[in-house]
């Protein structure tokens, strides 16, 4: 199967699932409408989904993806408690700043996932991204150091290893 057709099949399944989830899984009319809509959607946008050929063991990557998801949920819970603490503290003890970090990830999807994960975890928010030099600009609510290496380790280090396994 070519790359484009593969993307179309995935988009078809996903959009059908979303459509049926929003309407009903048991109604025959909705299923027929859903199939038609999903076919149209997958023909229109299916070719944009996959930008690179998949590589490596799919099962292993899936396992790492699940592991990443749970790690992410755990980090996110910690992030929320941290921000809640900062907000209820009477003096609001913040030390904000925008730092630059470097990442080893090259794949577009991996960079997007990393940037979004950074936004949702402890006191950090992705402001801009420079794919050419693999740099991310991060707004940090509690700057510990301004050194590029140390920031990279502190902010991206906890996700990078798992994302490497999933995407590269």
């Amino acid at each position: 199967m070519t790359k484009e057709n593969k993307g179309r099949v995935i988009v078809f399944i996903l959009s059908l699932f979303v459509y049926l989830g929003l309407t009903s899984f048991t109604d025959l009319q909705e299923i027929i409408t859903g199939v038609i809509v999903a076919i149209i959607v997958s023909l229109l946008v299916g070719k944009f989904l996959l930008s690179t050929e998949s590589k490596g063991n799919a099962f292993k990557r899936f396992f790492y993806g699940i592991a990443y998801f749970f790690k992410f949920l755990w980090e996110m819970a910690k992030a929320n408690l941290h921000v809640a603490y900062l907000v209820i503290h009477p003096q609001v003890p913040i030390k904000p700043g925008i730092v630059k970090i470097k990442t080893n990830l090259k794949d577009d999807t991996a960079l997007t996932v990393l940037a979004n994960s950074i936004t949702l975890t402890p006191g950090t928010l992705t402001v801009d991204i420079n794919p050419a030099e693999q740099e991310l600009y991060i707004h940090w609510i509690d700057v510990i150091s301004t050194d590029k290496e140390e920031c990279s380790r502190e902010i991206a280090g906890r996700f990078e290893k798992l994302l490497m396994e999933v995407f590269e």
């Binding site: 929320n80 907000v87 913040i94 949702l120």
Partner: peptide, 21 residues
């Protein structure tokens, strides 16, 4: 956090993390 934190960027931090979760 939206009320107490000082500028746009810090407020976004509270708005994205806590409100998403």
């Amino acid at each position: 956090g939206l009320v107490r934190l000082p500028d746009v960027y810090n407020r976004l931090q509270a708005a994205t993390k806590c409100v998403t979760f």
